[in-house]
């Protein structure tokens, strides 16, 4: 893949995820940034390291019935159920808009079956203008697929292997925290050829309306995100970064530059901002600026000197 202007891997915030060069390590987490255009009035999309779009399936999905979200202490529960316009409509209606920006576009791929993951990956690869694939084996809110593939290392390996066979794009495997040992899943993804792992997806949770004695979400359970999950995400990133050689992308409750820096120091090569986009649309801009200011203040020359620099 040829590097476009700005994706040249220069500049002190530049990072590489496999062959994918990013101008900075800040991405938008899938499902929290729509297809990018929703945030264009608020954010200079050119300044983002990467945009990861809402999870795409082969056919459009209408998602779960509402209520789908509920705010909880220091976070929120969601059970959207991967509502999306389908991969073909994405390529026709959303990708041309995204192509004009000087940022990496990463498509999040979801399937109910292995065949579906592979087909969606193939279609996205052929489309052009997508710079990497993030394989979603961790959505907790769907009946089939998603986390069903992410709790068994053999399944993680099978999906990863299959996708690697049908694409030449860098493949990121997004892991679920709802497992006994996330390192086992990360190792399985690495062994199957993944170029990177991103973690964590949401932690399965629940909330009850005590007056009505009903769950706040129609789906009963949902995925917890936001600052509440940050310590768990950070711990898992630190554990996985010590066990795999491929880049680890940290996700979970990052609201501020300081939160992002914790993840880098613990071993994340890049980070994703999710729930913070809902709280403040410009959160990513503030985080990019804050990381730059920190590097300057601490005279850190490049990301390599920051990533995994935890002193124990």
């Amino acid at each position: 893949m040829t590097n476009r202007k700005g994706l040249d891997g220069k500049g002190k915030l530049a990072v590489a995820i496999g062959t994918l060069k990013l101008k900075n390590p800040v991405m938008t987490a899938s499902g929290t940034f729509g297809y990018g255009e929703e945030y264009a009035p608020y954010v200079d999309l050119n300044r983002l390291g990467a945009i990861i779009v809402k999870g795409l399936s082969l056919k459009p999905r209408s998602g779960n019935p509402g209520p789908r979200i509920m705010e909880t202490p220091a976070g929120m529960l969601n059970a959207i159920g991967l509502q999306n316009i389908g991969v073909k409509s994405f390529i026709r209606n959303k990708l041309p808009y995204l192509r004009q920006f000087d940022t990496a576009i990463i498509a999040n791929v979801y399937g109910e079956t292995i065949e579906e993951y592979l087909r969606v990956s193939e279609i996205l690869t052929a489309a052009g203008g997508v710079h990497a694939l993030e394989i979603n084996v961790s959505c907790p809110n769907v009946k089939r697929g998603g986390v069903a593939f992410g709790t068994d290392p053999d399944m993680v390996a099978e999906v990863t292997n299959g996708v690697k066979d049908v694409t030449d794009l860098p493949v990121i495997v997004k892991l679920s925290p709802n497992v006994t040992d996330i390192c086992v899943m990360a190792k399985a993804a690495e062994a199957a050829g993944a170029d990177a792992v991103s973690l964590i997806n949401t932690i399965t949770g629940m909330s009850v309306d005590v007056e009505k004695r009903i769950p706040h979400l129609k789906n009963i359970t949902g995925g917890l995100s936001g600052p509440a999950i940050k310590p768990v995400a950070l711990r898992m990133v630190w554990q996985v970064a010590g066990r795999v050689r491929i880049p680890v992308i940290g996700v979970g409750g990052i609201m501020s530059p300081r939160d992002a820096l914790e993840f880098f120091i613990a071993g994340a090569r890049a980070i994703q901002v999710g729930t913070a986009n809902f709280v403040e649309p410009r959160a990513t801009m503030r985080i990019i600026d804050g990381i730059g200011a920190y590097m300057k203040r601490h005279r850190i020359l490049d990301m390599d000197n920051l990533v995994g620099s935890l002193r124990i």
Binding site: T32, G34, S62, G66, I69, M70, Q83, T275
Partner: peptide, 27 residues
């Protein structure tokens, strides 16, 4: 009304079923 997180159409938290012009149910 419905609970909302972003207000911008990104989180899909406030999806509602609506009939489109052809009478098909869409979110």
């Amino acid at each position: 009304e419905e609970r909302m997180a972003c207000g911008l159409g990104a989180c899909l938290g406030c999806a509602v079923d609506v009939h489109n012009r052809r009478g098909r149910r869409v979110k």
